[in-house]
C-alpha cells in the first residue's frame, strides 16, 4: 500500500514537472512573449530593456531554470492588468471555485447516484423512466437558461435565495444547482449502467442466497463494485466544474477561477493566464492522485498487483 502511494506520488510529481515545461514552452513558442508585455508604441531600446528585465535575452534552458526557481519560490510573475503578483490573484479566487464546485458535485452525485441506483434496481420502473426524461432535460437545457430561470423563480419571485455574491451558504444554492444540473445527468447515466453491469454478477446472486436484505445487497455488494467508473466520472466532472463554471460564475456574479481565467485571456494578461493554467493543472493532478488512492481502496486488486 505504501509503495502504491509513493509510486502514485512520484507519477504526480513528474506530471507537474511536465506541465511546468509545457506552460513555459507555450509562453515562449506562441510568438515573442515580449510583444504581449510591451505597449505597441514602445521604442526599440525600451523593448530591449524589458527583454533583459524578464531575462528573455538568455538561452532557453537558462530561462527555464530562472522560471523554475521563481515557481519554487511562489513567484509566477506579475499580472499585467492588475500589476500585482499573479499567484495570489489566482489563489484568492480558488476557495470560491472549490466551494462552488464541491456544492455542485454534492448535488449532482447525490441525485445522480441515487437515481442511477434506483433505476438499475428496477429497469423500466418509474424512477428509471423519470430519470431518463430528467437526463434528456439535463443535457438539452443550457446552463445560462437554467441559471436565469432559477434566478427568476427562486430569487426574484419566491425570494428564497440571493441571486448574486458569495458570502453565505444561501448564496451557494442557486449557482450550485445550476452548475450541478448538467453533471447530474451524466452521473445518473454512468451509475445506472455500472450498476446494471454489476447486478448481473454471480456474487450478487450469492449475496441474496446468504439471506441479505436487497437494500444491503445493493449498497454493499453492488455499489462498491460499480464505484470505480462512478468515481472516475465524478473526478473529471469536479475538475470541469472548477474551471468550466464561467457561465455560472458570470450569471451569479460568483468570484471564481473560471471568470478570472477568461478575463485574463481577453485582457492578454499572459502571466496571469500562465499562472491560472498552472494552478488548474496542479488541481487536476492532485484530484487524480486522490482518486488513485481511492481506487486502491475501492478495488483491492489494484493496490496489491
Amino acid at each position: 500500500m505504501i509503495r502504491y502511494i509513493l509510486q502514485r506520488l512520484g507519477q504526480s510529481i513528474i506530471t507537474v514537472w511536465g506541465i511546468s515545461i509545457v506552460v513555459f514552452m507555450l509562453a515562449r513558442l506562441s510568438g515573442d512573449p515580449l510583444l504581449l508585455l510591451v505597449p505597441p508604441e514602445a521604442t526599440k531600446a525600451e523593448v530591449e530593456q524589458i527583454r533583459r528585465a524578464y531575462s528573455l535575452d538568455k538561452p532557453l534552458p537558462q530561462q527555464y531554470l530562472t522560471y523554475v526557481r521563481g515557481v519554487l519560490r511562489g513567484d509566477f510573475g506579475t499580472s499585467l492588468r492588475f500589476n500585482e503578483p499573479a499567484l495570489p490573484l489566482v489563489l484568492k479566487r480558488l476557495p470560491a471555485s472549490l466551494r462552488l464546485a464541491s456544492a455542485a458535485m454534492v448535488i449532482s452525485a447525490g441525485i445522480g447516484i441515487t437515481v442511477g441506483v434506483l433505476s438499475a434496481a428496477r429497469p423500466g420502473g418509474w424512477v428509471d423512466r423519470f430519470g431518463k426524461a430528467f437526463a434528456m432535460l439535463g443535457q438539452s437545457v443550457p446552463v445560462f437558461w437554467l441559471g436565469i430561470i432559477l434566478i427568476l423563480v427562486f430569487g426574484v419571485r419566491l425570494r428564497w435565495f440571493p441571486t448574486s455574491g458569495s458570502e453565505t451558504w444561501r448564496h451557494l444554492v442557486l449557482p450550485a444547482a445550476a452548475l450541478g444540473w448538467y453533471s447530474t445527468a451524466a452521473m445518473t447515466r454512468i451509475t445506472r449502467s455500472a450498476m446494471l453491469d454489476v447486478l448481473d454478477a454471480d456474487y450478487i446472486r450469492l449475496a441474496h442466497i446468504k439471506g441479505l436484505h436487497p437494500f444491503k445487497v445493493i449498497t454493499k455488494h453492488a455499489l462498491r463494485n460499480a464505484s470505480i467508473p462512478i468515481v472516475t466520472l465524478a473526478s473529471l466532472q469536479f475538475i470541469a466544474l472548477i474551471n468550466g463554471a464561467v457561465v455560472t460564475e458570470t450569471i451569479f456574479a460568483w468570484p471564481g477561477m473560471g471568470r478570472l481565467m477568461v478575463d485574463a485571456v481577453f485582457a492578454r494578461d499572459f502571466p496571469l493566464v500562465q499562472t491560472a493554467v498552472f494552478v488548474a493543472s496542479i488541481l487536476f493532478v492532485a484530484t487524480n492522485f486522490a482518486v488513485d488512492l481511492l481506487y486502491g481502496y475501492l478495488n483491492p486488486r489494484i493496490a496489491y498487483t
Binding site: A201, D202, Y203, R205, L206, A207, I209, H221, R224, N225, L298, N299, P300, R301
Partner: peptide
Amino acid sequence: VAMILQDPLSSLNPVF
C-alpha cells in the same frame, strides 16, 4: 438452506 454456485471465480465479491 445454503447454496454453492458453479464458478468460484465470479461468485466471490472481489472487493471484500
